[in-house]
């Protein structure tokens, strides 16, 4: 089993002007196998995008890291040292959240692909455009016409596909997609999910999806890691996360999603997630948890129960601790 990504007690923070560190990721450990679809789920501000940015290697200079991160066994983060040589862009690539704003509006899709291929492989325009057409047809776009289109001439779904083509054109083996479906409607979302699944098979890609939509990811992911306040509170298989969510936070997230044709009362999670840098002494979810009890003032370890890992004291007895 080849591990595509391995994080060991990874902490990522941002330094402010007074040199205080606001920790956005507070010690996460996970492993992503090659060819796996791994999903990071959580609310805005929980640190999931920071974890994604750390894997890709696009943390800002004022970011501070601790712990270790390996990409295909190459240490990219060791303590506060970060070295992504040969990894960033080449092995790990990135599909941004909103392709409408991340594609250059002044350049055609072909030119944008040319710049990527030229900088990675040093190819001239003619060869780059030939290869670009291959990648555009891979994402089911018409290469002959789309190559000359400007981003505004494409629909949202087509822009997203063009962004995926640009990301894949470097020959990357790990694709990190930040909220790839949030800007799309149901029909396009389904098409994109099918495309990503197809690429995973044909290009043997490892997919890391970052999203806030628990139910839809549960259907496509092999492993789901639920992130809350910079910590992974639950890690389990995609199917289990919908059928049998373990952590109270995961259960509440699942209850908040409207299901078509079933008009159940929607439940929201009371309160707001802690702000980045806010330190909570015990369980990070305890202030919002309806099931919190006296033990929750201590930080819970990760318990291995029901083929998953959950950081909640309610499972201490089941795990035999």
């Amino acid at each position: 089993m080849v591990l595509a990504v391995k994080a060991k007690d990874l902490r990522v923070g941002y330094m402010d002007e007074e040199e205080n560190i606001l920790w956005a990721v507070k010690g996460v450990s996970f492993e992503v196998r090659q060819g796996e679809v791994f999903c990071l789920v959580g609310e805005s501000g929980c640190g999931k995008s920071t974890i994604g940015n750390t894997i890709i290697g696009i943390l800002p200079p004022y970011a501070v890291t601790e712990g270790e991160l390996y990409v295909f066994n190459k240490p990219v983060v060791v303590g506060n040292l970060r070295d992504y040589t040969g990894i960033r862009g080449r092995v790990v690539s990135y599909v941004p959240q909103n392709p409408g704003t991340s594609l250059n509006p002044y350049q055609t899709i072909g030119t944008q692909l040319y710049y990527v291929l030229n900088s990675v492989y040093g190819w001239d325009k003619k060869k780059s455009l030939e290869v670009a057409k291959k990648y555009l047809s891979l994402v089911e776009l018409d290469p002959e016409s789309v190559i000359d289109y400007y981003p505004h001439e494409l629909s949202g779904g087509m822009q997203q596909r063009a962004a995926i083509a640009i990301a894949l054109s470097t020959g990357a083996k790990i694709l990190v997609a930040d909220e790839p479906t949030s800007a799309l409607d149901a029909h396009l979302r389904l098409q994109l999910i099918k495309l990503l699944m197809k690429l995973r098979e044909t290009e043997s890609l490892t997919l890391i999806l970052i999203t806030h939509d628990l139910v839809s990811t549960g259907k496509i992911c092999d492993t789901v890691a639920v992130v809350y306040s910079g910590k992974i509170v639950e890690k389990c298989s995609g199917s289990n996360v919908i059928i049998e969510p373990l952590h109270p936070y995961t259960q509440m997230l699942a209850d908040a999603v409207p299901l078509l044709g079933i008009k159940r009362p929607l439940k929201s999670i009371p309160g707001e997630p802690p702000k980045p840098g806010e330190e909570i002494a015990g369980c990070v979810f305890a202030p919002r948890c309806p099931l919190a009890f006296e033990k929750c003032v201590e930080p819970p370890p990760s318990f291995n129960v029901y083929n998953g890992e959950v950081a909640c004291w309610r499972y201490a007895n089941i795990a035999g601790r």
């Binding site: 609310e43 805005s44 949030s182 939509d213 929607l266 929201s268 999670i269």
Partner: peptide, 14 residues
């Protein structure tokens, strides 16, 4: 609700 988290969607609908 499209720009909001699922967890607060229900609050806004209500």
């Amino acid at each position: 609700t499209s720009a909001l988290d699922v967890s607060i969607q229900a609050q806004i609908i209500e």
